[in-house]
Simulated scan of single mutants.
Amino acid sequence: MSARLQGRKALITGSTSNIGRATALAFAAEGAHVIVSGRDRTRGEAVVAHIRRAGGQADFLRADLDGSLAASHALAAAAIEQLGGHIDILVNNAGIFPPGTTLTTDEQAFDRVYAVNVKAAFFLTQAIVPAMISRGSGVVVNLGSWVARLSLPVGALYASTKGAMETLTRAWSAEFGSQGVRVNAIAPGVILASDEDSDTDPPVGLLMHGTPAGRTGHPDAVAAAAVFLASDDAAFVHGTVVDVDGGRTGVAVVADAGAFQAARTA
């Protein structure tokens, strides 16, 4: 590794599994001291142990980010104390994806999804950014999603929360950018859990047929983008959403690429 994050201190929410876990491992491998955070202590401590065995720095802080100001501010305070006084990088990754459609979603589910996916990140950013501004530097990386812009007939509630996070990315960039804090986002595509084989074709893989990549992605791809955005390599990148989706949103998907090519050349 190139140690692009050497000496940086990072808090990554929802980092006990999948994309968050991959991001924590990648940040630590690049030299960052990482706070792994989530609800599951067993999984979180396993991530920390993995990082330490590889020679990296990491600690676990259990947090149930329920959307309240108190929960987000408590995690921020604990992370700052654990990291020795400040946070250089915040990754707002924690989120939940509920099953159901608009017609089957009740008020309790609606409020919980917005609390975890939007409010928690909002109040965590509120708690951490002021010190970044005082130091004149800092990075916030939010997690959006391809479904915020390319809609499906299910998951409207989740998609709307990710649209909110992408909008907050631009708004926060405008609000904090001139004070030294860069804010960007990543919009993952169809990503399999890290313990699954991305070369297989599970039912969700059908969503990637006809895309440039032609297959589902792996959490490591998202983690690599997060490392870039958190590093000085992205010093001139502000307020953008990086699509890590195998071309799913940027390229027209053709169900039968061979037939399409034949028609073009006929």
Score class of each variant (00 low, 15 high):
residue 103 L to T: 12
residue 87 I to S: 11
residue 38 G to V: 00
residue 32 A to C: 02
residue 14 G to F: 09
residue 88 D to K: 12
residue 102 T to Y: 09
residue 84 G to I: 01
residue 82 Q to R: 03
residue 97 F to V: 11
residue 12 I to P: 06
residue 25 L to M: 06
residue 52 R to S: 03
residue 80 I to R: 14
residue 67 G to V: 00
residue 22 A to S: 10
residue 75 L to E: 03
residue 12 I to L: 06
residue 83 L to H: 11
residue 31 G to N: 06
residue 40 D to S: 06
residue 32 A to K: 05
residue 33 H to W: 04
residue 68 S to K: 07
residue 103 L to Q: 01
residue 84 G to P: 15
residue 31 G to R: 09
residue 65 L to Q: 08
residue 34 V to G: 10
residue 50 H to I: 01
residue 20 G to K: 07
residue 97 F to M: 12
residue 18 N to F: 07
residue 35 I to L: 10
residue 105 T to Q: 09
residue 53 R to T: 07
residue 38 G to C: 12
residue 43 R to Q: 13
residue 60 F to D: 11
residue 60 F to T: 07
residue 54 A to C: 02
residue 62 R to L: 00
residue 76 A to V: 05
residue 18 N to I: 01
residue 13 T to A: 05
residue 64 D to W: 07
residue 49 A to N: 08
residue 30 E to T: 09
residue 29 A to P: 14
residue 13 T to E: 14
residue 55 G to C: 13
residue 30 E to K: 04
residue 17 S to P: 05
residue 86 H to P: 06
residue 32 A to R: 09
residue 68 S to R: 04
residue 59 D to K: 08
residue 39 R to P: 02
residue 105 T to I: 06
residue 20 G to H: 14
residue 18 N to C: 03
residue 82 Q to P: 03
residue 102 T to Q: 08
residue 101 T to S: 04
residue 19 I to Q: 15
residue 80 I to H: 12
residue 84 G to E: 15
residue 73 H to V: 07
residue 86 H to F: 07
